[in-house]
């Protein structure tokens, strides 16, 4: 049987998650600002500012159209950046991973804990954004509460992908490549602020095949508009499969990097 490293993950991974939770809570004031401020700014500037010039998209007013995208983007950013820049700082500069694996934890425990934490952070942000969106009346209730549980798998997806980059990056500056060449284009071209179907067909297929945010936005939009279709099911399967693949790759790359 192929050794995927999964057998070396134990419940001790939760101690790593807990360490990051403790650090997050210590600085909660700073950490809680973005999820409140971001949706406010985007909704005002894009939803109502730019949105004043935009006709309803498929019969949906513009603020309502972008609301689920704002949650998706926030989950993507928080999980991806947590498992790239922040994890890299802990791994490389603070030597926290080295310290932890001297205790009875495997490197797989550490990476699993870090990824779970990245996803948790995404979930916290989605949870904090929701009241703002509800206050603006741009999301359906009560279905929109589903944004919270769905933020966890969505966060896991971006956390796993981020961790793969962290495992191969030569230094912290090189993490700018995936940030600008992968995350930023996704932010714009995943059906976030305009529908995919105005793009050339090939680009649409590319987005559906390779851009994770496309699927997260698709699911979140179905949730906030209470409009579920078979495509949502496809997105969920896509997210599940890709998450598992990148999780296994992240474990493997990290073992190769750190266990010499």
């Amino acid at each position: 049987m192929v050794d995927l490293g999964l057998s070396r993950i134990t419940g001790s991974a939760l101690y790593v998650w807990r360490r990051n939770w403790d650090a997050f809570i210590k600085t909660y004031r700073v950490n809680f600002i973005p999820p409140f401020v971001e949706p406010l700014l985007y909704l005002l500037a894009l939803g109502y500012g730019l949105g004043a010039f935009v006709e309803a998209i498929d019969g949906i007013p513009y603020p309502q159209y972008i609301a689920p995208a704002l949650v998706s983007i926030s989950v993507m950013y928080s999980a991806f950046f947590e498992c790239t820049y922040s994890s890299f700082v802990r791994m490389y500069y603070q030597k926290t991973f080295d310290a932890i694996i001297a205790a009875p934890l495997s490197i797989e425990d550490v990476i699993a804990g870090e990824i779970l934490w990245g996803a948790t952070r995404g979930t916290i942000y989605a949870t904090l954004m929701l009241p703002v969106l509800i206050a603006f009346g741009v999301v359906d209730l009560p279905t929109s509460f589903l944004l919270i549980p769905f933020a966890l798998p969505a966060g896991l997806l971006f956390a796993c992908i981020g961790m793969c980059f962290t495992a191969i990056t030569p230094g912290i500056d090189a993490l700018n490549y995936p940030s600008f060449l992968f995350i930023t284009p996704m932010f714009l071209f995943s059906g976030t602020f305009f529908p995919l179907d105005i793009l050339p067909e090939q680009v649409q297929y590319f987005a559906i095949a390779f851009l994770p945010l496309t699927h997260v936005v698709n699911v979140n939009r179905a949730i906030t508009l209470t409009a579920f279709s078979p495509f949502v099911l496809f997105s969920l399967v896509w997210i599940g499969v890709v998450t598992v693949i990148f999780f296994v790759i992240a474990l493997r790359l990290m073992r190769r990097r750190l266990i010499v």
Binding site: D22, Q94, D98, A99
Partner: peptide
């Protein structure tokens, strides 16, 4: 085991 590594790796967040 108790380990005192060559490089200090105390957790600076705490």
């Amino acid at each position: 085991l108790g380990v005192v590594p060559q490089e200090n790796n105390l957790d600076p967040d705490f």
